[in-house]
Design a protein around this nucleic acid. Structure first.
Lengths: 349, 349
DNA sequence: TGCGCAATTCAAATCGTTTTGAGAAATTGC
DNA sequence: GCAATTTCTCAAAACGATTTGAATTGCGCA
């Protein structure tokens, strides 16, 4: 591996000049810069990140700690994030160091990674309300970006979708079609995004003047059979008058709901409208549902680009307040939603 | 963060002595060593990996590049590997840098990661026959360990299970129960492990004097519905006399086969024996099948400990020949296998 | 008392980069 | 033509560890 010194001796220049030439400092002669750049190219020079880090205090590496949650949905999502994130970080010359959290205390793995002294910052995901990781990292001045934050009243960088708006859009769409009994199959409310959606759902329903019995708001790990089982219970009539529309927190859940509808001989959208929030996971595309699925859509992979940029910008010193992005999911109306069926006009109460 | 110099000035010692004291060199006075160690403890000293790397040429970081393969089975497996691997690496004070391969050329992502100059070696998985990554890394003298190699005639470190033995054990068990028509639902034969299993299956069947029509050896990405669809075809009788036993490359596939048997009203193990190779994925446990599943078992997570150790030992200079581990999977007989049913004694030919 | 040897410790070089402060060369102003 | 400025380049110091070779100390022994 060629070093700055190699280029320097080759060209009869000092390492200082070579360094400045390559880093685009203005005080170096244009002809010298050309010579240096050509030599660097020719000799296959790559700056040694280790040496750079030692002097700049930056390593060009960020950490992410994933928590094992044994459900398919979170694994698919994680893969999607990983793909988008490593690509987006690579575009800014940054590497991703990964660890799996197997500890009880949520901050322990962060502490362990930090002790190595090789990280510039962290990417956090799946926030919980009053996330203890946030306080811990902020107390130590460690830069981080939060993925999935949807409450803007914080003082750290984040990227997330407006989950209340997601629910307002979904409920609004269904209410406009005449639906009054709308059920909601949520994710785990322990997680902030699901808590926000639940609040958003209730607020949107209330705004339409509609009440929802607790039995028709489900919350759990969005596993393989969760959607199917909960939809079956809700649609069977056992819990009360069955909903005419169901909103799902993910397309995985929607797949289960569709299956339940088929098993109960309910036609979608004639007897039941179904919609979901779509992270655009390539394994389960809303367009491949039958009927095609009406969704609120916010591609997970694309979200990784601003996520990576926010973190690196923050490390570079940009203020947190300028690195807070809350996007609004797109509403895509397809064929799984339709007008409220005959005789379904009555609200629950 | 406390440095060697901090400890030195605190104790009135030179950094050299502090360094030697902490690294267990014999020429430092026992009392001095104690003082240094206590001071280090008290001041929360952690060696700066970056500085260590610069002078030793070692970074304590290894890379892994995962290839996106959109099937559930490989994602579950990847999670399992990730969990075991980061824990095993951490035990040897090593971090894992991860990237996702989205390029066509299999060596390009390795080259890109290497250019950063921060890695001590690589963990490769999912080898293909004559893997181009091997030649590329060997030509450059980059240490690596291969996960899943099952042919011992190579000159690099690896850890894998003996896939031919897996098939010999499986076929042997079923043949001993009187089965003559044994089908095999394999993984993708593009991958070395599946090619080895196919060869092992054929050899084991030939050793029992049994022929198998090609229609009863399936190979594909072990997706969600693959096992179900292939088993349905084989067991329907459309392709010829139906098998009395099925061997599956994974428990995911076996789940599909069980479902197909149920749909065709075939009782397991009375009408059909089913066995699988079990990577011990926590999401799909062989013991939770009904009936409980007979398997060849080799826990994926445990495999990561020798995998990590092989790589780090190799980086430390241990010869590749001493770092080749081929383990034999354990055979666990449960309730999904039984004697060949009445009238199922005839071989295919 | 003085010499040699072992046991400890230390100063300095090293890794490859960035950055500071200063110096040399070229250009300008009077 | 000489001083003042601008333009360019360089040597050296840093970052925090390891490692080499030398220096110091204490000890036993003649």
């Amino acid at each position: 591996m060629a070093t700055l010194k190699d280029i320097g001796t080759e060209l009869g220049l000092s390492v200082a000049t070579v360094s400045r030439a390559l880093n685009g400092f203005p005080e170096v002669n244009a002809r010298t810069r050309d010579r240096v750049q050509q030599a660097a190219e020719r000799m296959g020079y790559r700056p040694n990140r280790i040496a750079q880090r030692l002097v700049t205090g930056r390593s060009g590496m960020v950490g992410m700690i994933v928590k094992i949650r044994p459900d398919m949905s979170s694994e698919m999502t994680f893969f999607e994030i990983l793909t988008g994130l490593t690509a987006a970080l690579a575009a800014r010359d940054t590497d991703l160091v990964l660890a799996v959290d197997q500890a009880d205390d949520p901050v322990v793995p962060y502490q362990r990674m930090l002790e190595r002294g090789i990280l510039d910052g962290f990417i956090l995901n799946a926030p919980v309300p009053d996330d203890p990781r946030v306080a811990w990292l902020q107390a130590r001045g460690i830069p981080f970006v939060m993925h999935g934050q949807s409450d803007a009243q914080v003082d750290y960088p984040f990227y997330g979708i407006d989950n209340r708006a997601v629910m307002a859009d979904s409920v609004g769409l269904l209410a406009a079609l005449g639906h009054r009994r709308i059920a909601f199959l949520n994710g785990e409310v322990r997680l902030a995004f699901a808590a926000d959606r639940r609040a958003g759902f209730r607020a949107a329903m209330a705004a339409e003047g509609l009440a929802v019995p607790e039995a028709f708001i489900a919350s759990d790990q969005p596993g393989e059979s969760y959607g199917y089982a909960r939809a079956l219970a809700m649609l069977s009539g056992r819990l009360g008058p069955r909903p005419t529309a169901v909103i799902c927190a993910s397309t995985v859940i929607a797949a289960g709901v569709m299956q339940a509808a088929r098993d109960l001989a309910l036609a979608v959208p004639r007897d039941l409208s179904v919609m979901a929030h779509d992270d655009a996971l390539p394994q389960l595309r809303a367009i491949n549902f039958s009927p095609t699925l009406t969704v609120t859509r916010a591609p997970m992979r694309e979200a990784c680009v601003p996520l990576a940029n926010h973190l690196i910008d923050h490390i570079d010193g940009v203020a947190a307040a300028r690195l807070q992005t809350l996007i609004r999911a797109e509403v895509i109306v397809r064929n799984s939603t339709g007008p409220v069926p005959e005789g379904g006009h009555d609200p629950w109460h």
